[in-house]
Design a protein around this nucleic acid. Structure first.
Lengths: 333, 333
DNA sequence: ATGAAAGCGCTAACAG
DNA sequence: CTGTTAGCGCTTTCAT
């Protein structure tokens, strides 16, 4: 079913059909009607692909994600919400773990799509390595500080500060920090910075023993948590720089017979809604994931309209959601 | 950055570059190396669009959703998980509310994409109206019984039975049913059927007064719930055929001063993870949303491989998740 | 008002 | 082994 079928059926040339399709001038009213009729009758739809190959503009915003999991799904919801307010449509491109592990896959995918399938893109991929010169791009929460590409991130520094202040406010003095893996360049240090700032402000001495790097696998995480919790003078609270580590911490605590929240307070970061379902309910620093997706699309749309390029690096506020994992009785003095 | 730039830079014809790109026979090793080098150097990626326009096969599975919201997001997670196991990539196409409200938009979008952008599609859209003859398609939970297209749905009948049995087991005899809007052709009646079957099996007489249709807007929903709850001999329990209605019911009960679960048990259907966060925690019939997405992709892949077409209509089991909204003390006799 | 023709980036026959 | 050619479905001059 192509434009030629329509043309043949209507007894006109493809050029004429194309004009009708795009509401161009220079077609007799009667012809327009006839062609419209045939289109309706045949249920014809023009091919997005062929059209964009010609046009180099598609009315589509692309979102590139490494995979669709709880985190990116939240961002996608926000992006979809923002797109609703615009004339654009949304295409999510999920590499589905097929990115070879090689960094820079997003750049390659981007160039596969850009100019042809999407007018601009939102990148929800930890490592943004884009060769510029393609379409407008906005990165969401890049771990390796977006460089020259506009980004939307959450306020990691302040979030970590909130979390640590909360624990300090509960009376804790020995607070462990379970960090991100070293490869995560951007948000990890910011969160540790917030942690240390809070300590400093409260006049609590910094103990390097209480800071651990975490890791990627489950075992790495659990080992790190175990190390922290089996310290001679073990921490009475732990701030985990992402919620996977926080949950691992809670589990390790259980196996060690340490009661949460009775004998240990735990706060997580990097909240996806699912972590609210954790038992005991986890106190977390909540990132506005949906909002990040939404703002990213809004920025992209502004870019596409060539409006004032807006602030290139947006930081969205985080907030502390207190749940049972830091409930009294606590702390141990 | 096109194939011609590469060809020019490498001093060969585009045809040769194309051959290198696709690992075709008949290119001298030295030439292959040189072309590969140029490709690397220029960071060239072939255009997915141009390629698929030629090839009519893309290695991409499309998922069409009306919008990305909690429900479809769950399905997407499952689809993404399934795609990981395959050589395909995933493209989600979100109409973003732009579907005119006219039914059949999915068919139109499908034909815009099919044969060119996607090799097959999963439709996550209430009303599946596909003119066949395009690409292979699997529908997820279509409200209007998929007809000839293969579908993945959840076992609405059994789920409703479970919910009602649960309430009966609690001792309830006057159980209201807050149905889906009439337009929802498939799942609505199935859920009502399960409700009535359970009643019959328990020897509880069916009271038409206790069955209401619900509606689309918030007010419709609340009015329906209010009607049910202000009946002279009002129900002691309500089975709501989707979780939005269930939450509305809980809210209306509160405004009427009816304690949930003290004086009223509520069970919902159509669970998205978010409903676990409802206060009080909602007892729901949980649909395996992620699994549905996963199975849909698996079926589609089988279809694309032209394997045995498998069972065309898969029903996945639902399960009852009991939470506080049906906790004792209950029922009122 | 209409259509013939060129070409978007790419691939596949076919010649050379 | 390499290049020329035709054409995927569509839009757009430019003639007619």
């Amino acid at each position: 079913m192509t434009i030629r079928d329509v043309a043949a059926q209507a007894g006109v040339s493809v050029a004429t059909v194309s004009k009708v399709l795009n509401d161009r001038y220079g077609v007799a009213a009667a012809t327009v009607d006839r062609v419209r009729g045939v289109i309706e009758e045949l249920g014809y739809e023009s091919s997005l692909v062929a059209r964009s190959l010609r046009n180099h503009r598609t009315g589509v915003i692309g979102v590139l994600v490494w995979d669709i999991e709880p985190y990116s799904a939240e961002v996608l919801k926000g992006a979809a919400r923002a797109v609703r307010e615009t004339p654009y449509e949304l295409v999510v491109y999920a590499a589905g773990g097929k990115g070879d592990g090689r960094m820079g896959w997003e750049g390659r995918y981007l160039s596969r799509l850009s100019g042809t399938l999407v007018d601009g893109a939102v990148l929800v991929t930890p490592t943004v390595q884009t060769a510029p010169g393609t379409v407008p791009v906005v990165a969401v929460d890049p771990h390796t500080g977006g460089g020259s590409v506009p980004t939307v991130a959450s306020d990691n520094l302040h979030g970590a500060r909130l979390a640590t202040d909360h624990l300090l406010g509960l009376g804790h003095r020995r607070i462990g920090f379970l960090g991100r893996p070293p490869r995560d360049l951007e948000s990890g240090p910011q969160r540790e910075r917030g942690y240390r700032d809070a300590l400093d402000a409260a006049g609590v001495p910094f103990d390097p023993q209480l800071v651990l790097a975490g890791g990627y696998g489950d075992t790495d995480l659990q080992n790190a948590a175990r190390t922290l919790l089996t310290l001679p003078d073990r921490p009475t609270a732990i701030f985990a720089a992402n919620d996977v580590s926080a949950i691992a911490t809670v589990e390790v605590a259980r196996t060690l017979g340490i009661d949460v929240p009775g004998a240990l307070s735990v706060v997580g970061f990097d909240n996806v809604p699912e972590s609210a379902l954790c038992r005991p309910p986890l106190t977390t620093v909540e990132q506005p994931l949906q909002l990040m997706g939404q703002r990213a699309v809004e920025m992209l749309v502004a870019l596409l309209a060539e409006e004032t390029p807006e602030e290139p690096h947006v930081q969205l506020p985080t907030r502390l959601v207190v749940r049972d994992s830091t409930a009294p009785p606590n702390p141990r003095p």
